[in-house]
Amino acid sequence: MEIPNLTPAASERRKQERRTLRANAALRLSGATPVVVRTLDLSVGGMGVVAAINPPAGSRCTIGIASPAQPRGAIAVEIDAVVVHSIFSSRESGFKIGLQFGDLTQSAADAINRYLGS
């Protein structure tokens, strides 16, 4: 029996380094009430979260996070994003959602880069 190649296509591979980020955030889908989610990881291009909802791929949303404490304290940022994938994870007790960021504001990019150590 032949096993198919399980390596993701080049277009599906992460393009930036991600770093673990465990915190609560607020995910707001277009026209909906914000939902509290748990963050998994973060990069300058996107983040992974776990939620009780299963948004369809391609959904536009906003993610509100407080960047971890820095020399000047935590900075709250809201970032426009698109849902890339959402799949149920029994291990995480919710839907693992991959978000791809839209255009970052300078303050959001600075906060993420400080957290990533870039």
Rank of each mutant, 00 (worst) to 15 (best):
M1H: 12
E2R: 10
I3H: 11
I3Q: 12
N5L: 08
L6G: 14
L6V: 15
T7H: 11
A10P: 00
S11Y: 06
K15I: 08
Q16M: 11
R18S: 08
R18D: 05
R19N: 08
R19A: 11
T20P: 01
R22V: 15
R22Y: 14
A23T: 04
A23H: 04
N24A: 12
N24P: 06
A25N: 04
A25P: 02
L27W: 07
R28C: 12
L29R: 12
S30T: 13
G31P: 07
G31D: 11
T33A: 15
T33H: 15
V35S: 14
V35L: 10
V35E: 15
V36G: 05
V37S: 02
V37A: 06
L40V: 11
D41Q: 11
L42G: 06
G46M: 03
M47N: 01
M47G: 00
A52P: 08
A52W: 08
I53P: 06
I53A: 09
N54T: 10
P56R: 14
P56E: 14
A57Q: 11
A57L: 07
A57H: 12
G58H: 06
G58M: 07
S59N: 06
S59G: 10
R60Y: 07
R60F: 06
C61M: 09
C61G: 05
I63E: 02
I63D: 00
I63V: 15
I63A: 03
I65S: 03
I65Q: 03
A66T: 08
S67I: 05
S67K: 01
P68E: 00
P68G: 01
Q70L: 11
Q70W: 07
Q70P: 04
P71K: 07
R72H: 02
A74Y: 04
A76D: 15
V77L: 00
V77G: 00
E78P: 05
I79R: 02
D80H: 12
A81S: 09
V82H: 02
V82W: 02
V82T: 08
V82L: 10
V83K: 01
V83A: 04
V83T: 03
V83P: 03
V83G: 00
V84W: 01
H85F: 15
H85T: 13
S86T: 12
I87T: 07
F88C: 10
S90C: 09
R91P: 03
R91I: 10
R91L: 12
E92D: 12
S93M: 12
S93K: 13
S93I: 11
G94H: 00
G94E: 02
F95Q: 05
F95N: 03
I97N: 01
L99F: 06
Q100M: 10
F101S: 03
G102W: 04
G102M: 09
G102L: 10
G102D: 15
G102R: 11
L104D: 10
T105D: 09
Q106D: 14
Q106I: 14
S107N: 13
A108R: 00
A109G: 04
A111E: 00
A111D: 06
I112R: 01
N113G: 01
R114A: 14
Y115S: 00
Y115Q: 00
Y115M: 01
L116H: 08
L116I: 06
G117M: 02
S118D: 13
S118K: 12
